Simulated assay, not measured.
Amino acid sequence: MDIGCLFAPTTHTPDHIAEAERLGYGYAYVYDSPSLFANAWMTLGRAADRTARIRLGVAVVTPKLRHLVDNASGAVTLAALAPGRVDVVVGAGFTSAALLGRRGSRWAEVEEYILALRALMAGEEIDWEGARIALTFPGHSGLAPVTDVPVLAAAHGPKGFAVASRVADGVVTNPSHSSDPIPFEGRCVVTSYGTVLGEGEELSSPRVVDAAGPGAALALHLGEYGPLAGTDEVRGYQAWLASVPEERRHIETHREHLIGVTPEERPFITPKVIESATATGAPQQIRERLEHLEQSGATTVAYQPAGPDISRELRAFAAAAGL
């Protein structure tokens, strides 16, 4: 099983990806949510100049956020900068769509988008939204069609896994979204949140809350659809959210999403929540979880470091994973 990493991109992420390569991580993906994070394609372009081996990818692009041509061009450009080590993940959308006040795409749209994205990258002409389109890069642009960029699907339920089985080169899934995270045969990337505990460190430690809190807060954001359904913490968080004017709730729900913990979330990031919603634990516990995921069918675990010291999180997880 490969060990990769996943970033909520900031202006420092290119350097963190270079550090991840030195530590032995095989993959580095970044989220694409422009209302929250640094630009995904720009971040990976800068990372390409700092690395030589690690695979680079966006997880995820969505039909409702960027036009198909924009993402196809981004992927082809990144493939020219980092040949043979680019992945693209397509999904229905969660935070990126919510922050535009929209719902995620239908899975039929995701399936169509995957097929069209692959065709455009390969240099084909396609019909899209009533027009014939293609990537027609000039010969001196340094860009050329690519057919070696895997396109994966971000899938967390039966419809997503069905689409992935039909048209994608694998799946990226999140155990927080479902009690059955890997009902899929083939390349399966499982995301992991949390922090590696130091000797004698407690789940209530401020450092642990800062580092594991963003992943734990994701479960609060999922509410009754996530692993904390029915808990006092979810009820308390939802009660606070109900006090926010309705037209702003989507903004406040996702403020600091996966990158920090807001003052309003912090009272609900309890040791029980961290234990239930993240893969936080001592090094031996991390190793045991990785072994369990491998036995369950994961081919890659993508660890998302968070908190104020990303380098520490990368080093600690790499050591626990035996990189």
Rank of each mutant, 00 (worst) to 15 (best):
E202F: 09
T62I: 12
Y237N: 02
L152P: 03
A319F: 11
T10V: 11
G84I: 09
E288W: 06
G200P: 07
R55F: 14
S204V: 10
H292N: 08
L152F: 03
E313M: 10
I259S: 07
V151L: 07
Y237H: 11
S179E: 15
A318N: 13
G45I: 11
A28I: 13
P145F: 04
S276R: 14
P181T: 09
E313I: 02
A122H: 04
R53V: 11
T300P: 02
D15N: 14
I3G: 04
H12P: 01
T299L: 04
G57S: 13
A211Y: 00
R46E: 07
L68M: 13
E291L: 05
V110S: 00
T62G: 03
V88I: 13
A97V: 15
G4F: 00
T43Y: 06
G215Q: 11
G157H: 10
G307T: 10
D15Y: 07
E313R: 05
V69D: 07
R103K: 11
L218F: 14
A153R: 02
E21N: 09
R166V: 07
V149H: 06
A8Q: 06
L241F: 13
P9A: 08
E252A: 12
E291N: 10
R255I: 04
R248G: 02
H156W: 02
V60K: 02
A302D: 06
V171L: 04
A279R: 10
T300A: 09
I17K: 03
L228T: 14
A321I: 08
A59C: 15
K272C: 00
H254E: 01
C5Y: 01
E294W: 08
V89L: 03
N39M: 04
S96M: 05
P181H: 12
E129T: 12
